[in-house]
Design a protein around this nucleic acid. Sequence first.
DNA 1: AGGGGTTCTATGGGTTCCCATGGGAACCCG
DNA 2: CGGGTTCCCATGGGAACCCATAGAACCCCT
Lengths: 180, 180
Amino acid sequence: MGTHRTPSAALRRQQHIGRSLDGLRAIVRALRVNSHALERRIGLSGAQLFVLQQLEPGPAGSMNELAERTLTHQSSVSVVVSRLVERGLVTRTAAQTDARRTEIALSARGRAMLRRAPVTVQSQLVAGLRALPPARLAALAAGIEGWLRAAGIAEGNPPLLFEDASPAKAGAKRRPRARE
Amino acid sequence: MGTHRTPSAALRRQQHIGRSLDGLRAIVRALRVNSHALERRIGLSGAQLFVLQQLEPGPAGSMNELAERTLTHQSSVSVVVSRLVERGLVTRTAAQTDARRTEIALSARGRAMLRRAPVTVQSQLVAGLRALPPARLAALAAGIEGWLRAAGIAEGNPPLLFEDASPAKAGAKRRPRARE
DNA sequence: AGGGGTTCTATGGGTTCCCATGGGAACCCG
DNA sequence: CGGGTTCCCATGGGAACCCATAGAACCCCT
């Protein structure tokens, strides 16, 4: 199939690849810059606000669960929660069923903070998706998933292809047992 | 337009939005996890390797230029370069034409490092794009750009919609004068 | 009851990231 | 020439991120 491509098709492909990566980079960068700006404006970083948002639908039964919700590492979210606790925006209590576990919930102050939180880049991204015509939105979602699958980064796939003996162990450790 | 949508269409839209964001988050996370794994394997973090890769086509005439290439802040890339210099992987010299500037280039060791660098998640992402059929690749690139445009995050657009008086100033400062 | 293995999370370590800033170099104008 | 301004970047500060780990809690088997 590749044998009868013209140079201009290969060049066009290279351009599409470049544009996709540039778009991805632009998103990542915008999110980072926005985090700092948020901190100046409301005293909360992007990560802190994101955790608040993820707690809005309901409390988390453990730190590991919250880490899953936010797609970050347990230790990372623990630090963010600590800061939110200091600010009185979330509560952290030992679970009744298992003293090792920590339950995390929004406080009233946290809810109030969410109500007056400004527009974030993440909100913009969501609004951007909303503004897309339905067919384009569907195509984009499918395209992203196809990309991830082709790249071997889809759910269930180990994200790291070159890891050796220790990866299997790390992978097992990173899959917390499913919650009831 | 929105008035004659069925609930199932709205639900489907919500699902597409969720899938798109989940895909984006998966990418971001994979890149971060990969950075750490790289560090264990070859002693270079993702950011360090990325800078090496960006220098492969040719040296950077200044730190600001390299920051633009890597879509990071000048101060960030300065730190990364310092570490690479310590490792003898890049060279940092004052420019002849303007002593305020720093020129950054790959060393022979840096080139050798690049030759034996392992597969990274970024490489996987590129390979994933390559593996897409041309029509899907083009649609994805266009979709991402359309998304960014609709979200107000496209090039040239200020990434922050809520900034007030200081943003204009900050924006001006962040636009270095064009290089000859 | 006791012990071994597993789970949970706070904490330390190292790196990156952006913002702010200061010092030195370069530029411009009177 | 000299003073004022701008440019450039290294450096410090603070937060987030993942990895590693220690201590407490839990579970299961003998």
